[in-house]
Write a protein that binds this DNA or RNA. Sequence first.
DNA 1: CCGGCTGTGGTACCGCGGTACCACGGCCGG
DNA 2: CCGGCCGTGGTACCGCGGTACCACAGCCGG
Lengths: 216, 216
Amino acid sequence: MDATTVLLVDDQALVREGMAMVLGQEPGLRIVGEADDGRAGVQLARLHRPDVVLMDVRMPVLDGIGATREIVTHCPQTRVLILTTFDLDEYAFDGLRAGASGFLLKDASSAELVRAVRTVAAGEAVVSPRITRTLLDRYRQAPVNPPESVRLLEELTAREREVLVAIARGLSNAEIAAELFLSESTVKTHVGRVLAKLQARDRIHVVIWAHRHGLG
Amino acid sequence: MDATTVLLVDDQALVREGMAMVLGQEPGLRIVGEADDGRAGVQLARLHRPDVVLMDVRMPVLDGIGATREIVTHCPQTRVLILTTFDLDEYAFDGLRAGASGFLLKDASSAELVRAVRTVAAGEAVVSPRITRTLLDRYRQAPVNPPESVRLLEELTAREREVLVAIARGLSNAEIAAELFLSESTVKTHVGRVLAKLQARDRIHVVIWAHRHGLG
DNA sequence: CCGGCTGTGGTACCGCGGTACCACGGCCGG
DNA sequence: CCGGCCGTGGTACCGCGGTACCACAGCCGG
């Protein structure tokens, strides 16, 4: 088996040097590139298709979240490990949603860093303990409750909510009409009102809204 | 600072003995009791108020989930660490909802066990890597394992994936064309191929697919 | 060197989605 | 009792989305 290839993306050269120092002399690991902003990171990732990308969150040009999203889009087999300075960094959670395989505090020991890289390279996930705590808290609370969206939901009539979930399921107007025993005209009327109340320009945005807020 | 007190709850005596062996000779740790079912575990926890409870999931009389729920209710400062044999154990996730501070596979090494106990005793959370992976998948609202979805994703070309995420963001063909510097015809071509490869009848189903599988 | 894939582009066509506007019965509250 | 909201329905219109088919350049692999 070849060495695990690693790409470093961080705007602070010192950090990159430190990591390169630690990882470079580790058997089975090989640094294949370094970048000092997100855009360059994405380009190098697409070029080298490394096994693991160590990605800083805050960076010029393109931040770590956007870069992560693009990398997982272009290189599905590449694992991204987010590096963050503060354990309650909101961006880090966005990073997970963007498709990162884990994240690590920058104050981690070199041994932890090496272990984390090997872990994600093996296809598993790693999260530093303090962040795991927060993650679990969110998981427990997860069910619902984005207050703004609930307010909008309550502005809808019962019938409109039925139509909304039907839209979110991907049904066409004709299918909704059949399922609810309505004419297609009526469905169109309801759909129009849902669009207006949610300020969505078309049913596609309704689908996105619904899935962002726990439906589907 | 006093030693960290630990309570063992498992219906298999061998497992308890093994853990007692490992933890008992560890400096700073002290076993304060053992129980072989959930009910007894709750009673001993209320009696000794240990820092950490190592809790099996499957047990007679009262299972580990119910026992965890009662313990965190009666002894808020006590941390419960769930032990599970299989990493995809559904009950383990229920355990997290019940208030456990983490869970651990039974095939963990003794060093991992010790480290996990110390970690939760410090008020942090610990989850074994394989389970973390699943947890993150759920956090992203992906069903469980997306092997099928990843396979589909990799069938797409890089360009098609770019178009896919644009669709998932709710962009119209014209908007995608503008963003990627393409003609609308070309966008339509790509969109058509994405639809075919994902077996989606229209872009709406693509949006749903994308949001179900972690994009957006 | 040729075939296949990818990315780019075009034309033509049709149907669904969305809008605008209107209508009417039922129900509730002022 | 009457005005307003809700749910139901209709007509007419237009544009975007999706399909079908074709074309060509570049690249890579057999």
